[in-house]
Design a protein around this nucleic acid. Sequence first.
DNA 1: TAGTTTTCTTGTCCTATGTCAAGTTTTAAT
DNA 2: ATTAAAACTTGACATAGGACAAGAAAACTA
Lengths: 193, 193
Amino acid sequence: MSTHHFLNNIFPSKNFSTEELETILPKFKQVKFAKNDYLLTEGNTENDYWFIESGFVRSYVIDTEGNDITTNFYAAYDIVIDWSSFFLRNPTRENIQALSDCVCWQLDFDTFQFLFHTIQSFREQGRTTLVGSYFTLKNQRISMIADQAKERYLRLLQEKPHIIQNISLKHIATYLGITDTSLSRIRKEIAEA
Amino acid sequence: MSTHHFLNNIFPSKNFSTEELETILPKFKQVKFAKNDYLLTEGNTENDYWFIESGFVRSYVIDTEGNDITTNFYAAYDIVIDWSSFFLRNPTRENIQALSDCVCWQLDFDTFQFLFHTIQSFREQGRTTLVGSYFTLKNQRISMIADQAKERYLRLLQEKPHIIQNISLKHIATYLGITDTSLSRIRKEIAEA
DNA sequence: TAGTTTTCTTGTCCTATGTCAAGTTTTAAT
DNA sequence: ATTAAAACTTGACATAGGACAAGAAAACTA
């Protein structure tokens, strides 16, 4: 294992002993996805998750009217996982697709379970990551209720500028819960102000 | 410990050994809340969570315009917890209030940590519960984007009829992301149909 | 049991955002 | 380079749901 491994960013030595890292890091396998490849498709149960070293990924669902709704964007250092499919071992409703060529580090469920039940710091970090996702999602739900579309866009712009710059308007629009037409007008309004 | 303890519903013997239950159950403390009591208030870090034996509880946040927005309802057998405040040890934005007199079973963070790191089945169950909450929240977010207010109301009616029967219209309305005026009209429309 | 407060309903009018459709610009492919 | 396909913009119009206000009906309270 090289001393400058991508995964050292994910598992920093301040949180893990050398011995723990020697157990954890070799369990991850580097995988590459080409643009438009699917990491997961509706109806399947997710058996792996990934950390992104480079590239962009999007997850989406198809609603009852057949509309594509973006549920999340993922970029370098993010974890790509459908928490409920991975942990509850249920078929997912989500599609997860590479928006560009990607380099990822993959771990499968059984290996995750082994590390989770063996290494205390690993499960602490896993729990923290999941709770962090929960927190983000809860704030998004509140924002859908309390904020106007323009405010939601401005917040995204501030929090994830790399998303706005790399991802098509229509995908950002469904993520914000508006139409591409509206988002185009919001952008115009901001540009003119 | 009596053989017919409320907590046996939460920790069923099919998932836990007798020995494990003898470790877990006595750690919970029965607490009672009177109607309108707060279990948690904004700005504080949650150090306990509860299972509800009886009663109704509501959590809400105050948005930037000072509006009260219901984030969740809790009834018998539900876990009452602010996941992010409890696990990330951060001050919460939520207020959690008893809507009726309640009997609850309480566990504090340090005891949780002890059980989580000691008992495998305890942490499996904890993870499953958290992931279940995540799943529900994600579906609510998608529903806010994809469904009309009436559909969201009808789904709530179907999934949690006890909520509709016990909780005031205005609290249900903010939970669904609409005004009480709109919800009143939706109810009328459904009644007339 | 009257009085007060809260909850719920209903009317009128308004606004943010959606729908549809026609262009324009950008990107991708041969 | 040429064409085809996406992505984006813009206009005209429609609509779900919001804002405000006045009553009616319940639910507490003294």
